[in-house]
């Protein structure tokens, strides 16, 4: 069964297009990374999927229905982000106590254990948590709902290094024990690469690619060597990124294809996060170009 089905999904905020024709499908139970630069439309997409905001045009189906104002979608999906709010009158313990009424598959044991592990104060109010603790609590809440579609929007914002790695581990373990569709948008692609199965890269409101991690790893290759040799080799290829290393040597990233091996040019794999960065950069150069 298809979990998410977007066809030419568009959304405008005051004439500015946040989503400009998104088409993708999410099948099976996988962990998908939603990757994109700031302002690419990640948050807008997730909010539409969660039914918080209305779609502009096009089609969006979550569990075969339009998520806006849909009880079935709301009951089986959750979006965890830093804007999650809970009543000021309820303590964290109260919130966890009420959640099972809403979410039929709520895992009380998991919630309590994680709560204890991260040493949160059950009498604390949600609005008074520090940024990191709030993110931790939201994450616990999101995981414990066991929703068939669980979405995290920048879940690790504000968490410290140790909590971040704990979070990734908890997510992976819980996913293996209870497979479901999980979508994570994050800036820290490198550190969560190991748990992603698919990557959905969007840029300026459009899907750049939706591929498995393995495919993305093979997406590009870097050539490094003397400038003239590298340029010759890269001629006619799709160049994603170039960087002048020094006066003689050049570093060029091209889309991967069959290539002769030449002495003086080394080929190197390109990390997934670099691929995503290069593919979504507008110019061929990097920040260095600004200072030329």
């Amino acid at each position: 069964m298809t979990v998410i089905d977007c066809q030419d999904l568009r959304k405008k905020y005051k004439r500015m297009a946040a989503l400009d024709g998104i088409t993708f499908q999410l099948k099976d139970q996988k962990i998908t990374g939603l990757i994109g630069r700031n302002g690419a439309g990640k948050t807008t997409l997730l909010k539409i999927l969660a039914g918080f905001i209305r779609k502009g045009s096009g089609d969006v189906l979550v569990f075969s229905s339009n998520p806006f104002n849909n009880l079935r979608v709301s009951g089986n999906s959750i979006l965890v982000d830093d804007q999650m709010s809970f009543p000021d009158s309820l303590t964290l313990a109260d919130i966890l106590g009420m959640a099972p009424d809403f979410y039929k598959r709520w895992d009380t044991e998991l919630a309590n254990n994680l709560f204890k592990y991260f040493k949160l104060n059950p009498k604390q109010l949600h609005s008074r948590l520090s940024k990191g603790n709030k993110a931790t609590f939201n994450m616990i809440f999101g995981l414990a709902t066991r929703c068939e579609l669980t979405m995290f929007d920048e879940p690790t914002n504000g968490m410290d290094e140790a909590v971040r790695s704990d979070f990734y581990r908890a997510l992976l373990k819980d996913y293996i024990a209870h497979p479901r569709s999980i979508m994570i948008s994050s800036h820290h692609l490198a550190e969560m690469e190991h748990l992603l199965e698919d990557i959905l890269l969007i840029h300026k409101g459009k899907v750049v690619f939706h591929q498995s991690l393995e495919e993305v790893k093979e997406y590009a290759v870097a050539l490094q060597g003397t400038t003239d040799l590298v340029e010759k080799l890269a001629a006619g290829k799709e160049i994603l990124h170039t960087k002048q290393l020094d006066s003689q040597r050049n570093y060029v990233v091209i889309k991967k294809e069959e290539m002769p091996v030449i002495d003086g040019v080394t080929t190197q794999p390109v990390s997934v996060s670099d691929v995503c960065m290069y593919v979504t950069s507008d110019g061929k150069g990097g920040i260095d170009d600004v200072f030329k």
Partner: peptide, 18 residues
């Protein structure tokens, strides 16, 4: 996939308690 289905009445009742 196991989708849980709640009726409107159930959700309203739960929200009311909350």
């Amino acid at each position: 996939m196991f989708l849980s289905n709640s009726t409107l009445g159930e959700v309203v009742w739960t929200q009311l308690k909350f």
